[in-house]
Amino acid sequence: MIRYVFSRLATSIVLVLLATLVVFLIANTIPGDPALAALGDEQASDPAAVSAFRALYGLDKPLWEQYWRFLQRLAHGDFGRSISSRRAVMADIIDYAPATIELATIAFLLSLLIGLPLGIIAAVRRDSWVDHLARAVALIGVSAPTFWLAFIMLAIFYGYLGWAPGTGRLDPIAFAPDRITGMLLIDTIILGDWETFRDAAAHLVLPSIVLASATIGLITRTTRAAMLEALSQDYVRVARAKGLLARVVITGHALPNAMLPVVTLGGLAYANLLTGAVMTETVFSWPGLGRYTFRSAVSVDFPAIMAITTIVAAVFVLVNFLVDLSYAMLDPRVVKK
């Protein structure tokens, strides 16, 4: 098992490095000069200003040297300076990431909490009303466009019914708690500031539902299919033939087998939630990585783009590494003796 963990870890590190190289090369071959984009028309017409800018950010060095410097700084957690915000990219990311992590995690937990039981019950009571409901939820969740769902939810629950608060992470008049982790729910718990906790939680409800909608659908569908498959296996009939309770047959025998595809999907879904919240964050004015990504892309902010891409790659590789580990724990056939 330990050897398995290390071999997977080594593979993961190689993958992240490869990803940074690919990102670096792509970023350098796309048309669009960051110097021209950052300096504005007037300064960009001055060759001295342009070459000074290039020298400042190392853009005048050969490609391999730029990449080598990039890797060196990466080892120190230094992604360089953002061209548009003129701050350290790391500082930007530390500012923006917690909002996204909080939103994505809540959305992910929501997907599991709804998707897993719904999928399991739908499979056990096949063709019952629960099954039909599950299929409807899955269909709507997967097929409804995020921006549409976001506006509809806001219009109904904020605009018309007034049950939910508006956009942003907190009420405009509320004071943000002192920053500890940057994740409001955790910070307010640590500080014991329950009023702000409730406010932050209320603001999370609509965006997390919108963000989770597609994932709920996917997890429900996959769980249902995997459970149906597991329930039809011979070992489930054997378990019934032992005289076990139906509950034990379902949760003790079918479920552990059905979890294998769900874990794979769940890992990818979480990585997607963490990195793919652009639309939701935009509609809900959520100050997260998604919006930061969008802004950096538009302004051809190389250091920021590369930092974000590296982080995205790292998140995917890390999540896949965790999926592999949990797979090995769930299925003894993965790790051979």
């Binding site: 011979d234 054997v238 033939a241 032992k242 552990p256 769930l330 299925d331 003894p332």
Partner: peptide
């Protein structure tokens, strides 16, 4: 259920699929 496995037991055709692969 109290009869199954206790009074009457059953052995099936395919031993490769009759045991749950993820349980000891």
């Amino acid at each position: 259920r109290s009869v199954r496995g206790r009074e009457i037991a059953m052995v099936f055709q395919d031993p490769m699929t009759s045991l749950n692969p993820v349980l000891r």
